[in-house]
Write a protein that binds this DNA or RNA. Structure first.
Lengths: 161, 161
DNA sequence: GAAATTTCGCTAACCAACTTAGTAAGATCC
DNA sequence: GGATCTTACTAAGTTGGTTAGCGAAATTTC
């Protein structure tokens, strides 16, 4: 074996990277975002569905929605959302019901199976996170909360810009 | 108009959700993960590439890698990675170079254009985040760091589990 | 040091899940 | 009450992943 991962095979191949010298917490945030992105994919595949379907279940678990509103939240087209709902229904994770007041609309409701699917996979994590939070003093919790909402704001700005 | 988002059209449609009563900071974390997931998609489309390509550029900006190692980090197959590198090269964002010591290997190196692409889009966010962090006292920063690494650990456990 | 095995990067064929485009039905607005 | 908008859907096309498998180079085994 030449080298495990030879990142510096020669000077010529190693370009001058204008490095951030990111602080530890910025690094931790990066890492958090990375696993945060990997996690739904892994969990979804484990549960035999696509990432989008898992997210749809998450949203629908909080409140019943129509396909169009679901599409907006998932940042996909309503055509795609239609297919997502089809697949959820096919797997018994959701049901379509007619909207009582509006003949055009459909209300997508999560079934117990769907809710179990979402909660079952994510509960251990939420438990750990709740514990982690429990280990903080109220003051510390306030600091964390301020940081998190600030980070969300920074990212949202870029999202809109 | 019947209602903006009619979430409770009737009692029959509103299923009994076994609600978390998530704490504020857990909610903030959820939100952070959500925008954290939305952001690469939006930025990538803006830059005219796929999410995977953007992530590839991010990894390659830190260090030059071969397609197989890149694939491992992106959690895709080496076949897919081959295509990712093809597209990056086609857009002038990366170059393939032969590995000096190992005739089988290729080293993928980011070009200036590729680096500009990544940094240009993400810099404003990192700047905001750096500012946010600057507004913390050293003690607070330590708290945040501890929380973030703890959260990463909790999620990583689920990832491996 | 030759043969067997592994690793790397790639191509080909296939497939899942998105997009765009467009339709019909019902609601809303002068 | 006719024009316009909204909702949900279908059909066709595109993108970007997968599995399978190949040749070349490196590594291990005998």
């Amino acid at each position: 074996m030449v080298s495990e991962i030879s990142t510096q095979p020669s000077e010529a191949l190693q370009t001058a990277v204008p490095r951030w010298r990111p602080s530890r917490s910025l690094e931790a945030l990066q890492e958090l975002l990375d696993v945060g992105e990997a996690l739904p994919e892994v969990v979804a595949r484990r549960a035999g569905m696509s990432t989008t379907e898992l997210h749809a279940l998450r949203h629908l678990s909080a409140e019943a929605l129509g396909p169009v509103e679901l599409a907006r939240r998932l940042r996909i087209t309503s055509a795609a959302s239609s297919g997502v709902v089809d697949r959820l229904v096919a797997h018994g994770h959701a049901e379509r019901r007619p909207h009582p007041d509006d003949g055009r609309r459909t209300v997508v409701v999560v079934t117990d199976s769907g809710r179990a699917e979402v909660i079952g996979w994510l509960r251990p994590m939420f438990q750990s996170l709740a514990e982690l939070e429990g280990s903080l003093t109220p003051d510390e919790r306030a600091v964390v909360e301020r940081y998190l909402t600030g980070a969300v704001e920074a990212m949202r700005t870029l999202l809109r810009g």
